[in-house]
Design a protein around this nucleic acid. Sequence first.
DNA 1: TAATTATTTTTGTGATCACATTTTTAAAAT
DNA 2: ATTTTAAAAATGTGATCACAAAAATAATTA
Lengths: 231, 231
Amino acid sequence: MGNLALEPLERPEGMTTHEYAHRRLRQAIMVGSIRPGESLTIRGIAEAMESSPTPVREALRRLSSEGALRVLDNRRIMVPRMTADRFSELVSLRSMLEQHAARRAVPHITERRIDQLAEIDRAQDEAIARKDDATALLLNQEFHRTLYTANPEQVIMPMVESVWLQLGPFLGIAMEHVAQLYFVDRHQEAIAALRKRDEDAVAAAIRADISEGIGGFERSAIENLLKLAGQ
Amino acid sequence: MGNLALEPLERPEGMTTHEYAHRRLRQAIMVGSIRPGESLTIRGIAEAMESSPTPVREALRRLSSEGALRVLDNRRIMVPRMTADRFSELVSLRSMLEQHAARRAVPHITERRIDQLAEIDRAQDEAIARKDDATALLLNQEFHRTLYTANPEQVIMPMVESVWLQLGPFLGIAMEHVAQLYFVDRHQEAIAALRKRDEDAVAAAIRADISEGIGGFERSAIENLLKLAGQ
DNA sequence: TAATTATTTTTGTGATCACATTTTTAAAAT
DNA sequence: ATTTTAAAAATGTGATCACAAAAATAATTA
């Protein structure tokens, strides 16, 4: 029933209701606060964020197009269940997508942007040091996003975000059941490669960052986590 | 105003209005019958398909999340303008995505599905022979889709479709200004590689199919086409 | 007690309306 | 004739309502 736990979120002036609903749901899914399998009701969400069905429905449509939600045959909407196989597909897709995004960004990178990346990485290290997983996760995303959007004609970012969104619920589960997330940092490697404008090295750093990061989960560990989470 | 040319489309029983609107607009964009830059109005579309704003808005939200439409600051909605740079990004992304999708499909391919692929390719050759570009284009898509969806846990297909959708308007322009589309057929090559379960060869065939097909446009040809189309 | 049927409630869907903003058209001024 | 200003029309947005389908609950039967 309408007991949906949605963390509050500041709403910038001028933001439409459906946009706000989209962002808030998106964040909730990304950090895994909506359990996969749990079904969402339009009215429930509308009530939880004090609006009405119309804008909420628009937000849900967008999220389903982004792969974050799945519409069942009976028109119920839910966060997709994770399986070990799907997880493996997502990680492999993420690695390929981001290597490509990184390569296509290299020709457009500026020293100014590399400095920005270094600053984000420093902030992330701080967050890791004080064991603030949530912030570290967010800064990690910002690092990758800042790199890929160096390419002004880039069309890949929405797809990268879609993969992040689909992996989100699993990360949420992992954070619940693992005492401390293990953070890999290949960012320094990436930055060094960027300064040399070495495409291959940049791609290799991104690849390592992903394969040793989220891609580092053993299949058996994944199955255990999913079982623990009642999936 | 409201003089939107939407080809009629059969509506299967049980299909919701927003779903129907989504499919119909999607097809119109895919074949390039909505000019980039032309702005769409919710009421205009609703009127054109004899429904109301609510479901049309949902369809538009989905299409904008799929990259087919762009929402401007003044909240106007339009088909994104194509540029030579964006085109190049899209083609390079398409090549990379589809090679990956093909590779991940190989382990799941069955002889039965390879036969299906051969049949689709045969039908496409027929369509090309009778100079039926529209049908050939559709069958080409079906060939690729049938290959990639052999992988049951595949999560990449929506992204492939998104790229097709974003390239659609350009194909529409090309079909208007070029007497006859030049079709490449590396499908036989792909089929042969599939029978041998040779991942590298399959990926190479897909790569060639794309780079010699839509990727074969010279940059100058693209710029000319876009200029001709008043972009 | 377990299974089946009937009733009630909940839910998704789409049309309509009101409001604010934007765009277009008409009128006036320079 | 060109620019400014004023009025009118069109447009995006979101709340509300009615309806049908689905789910949950209550009542009944085996």
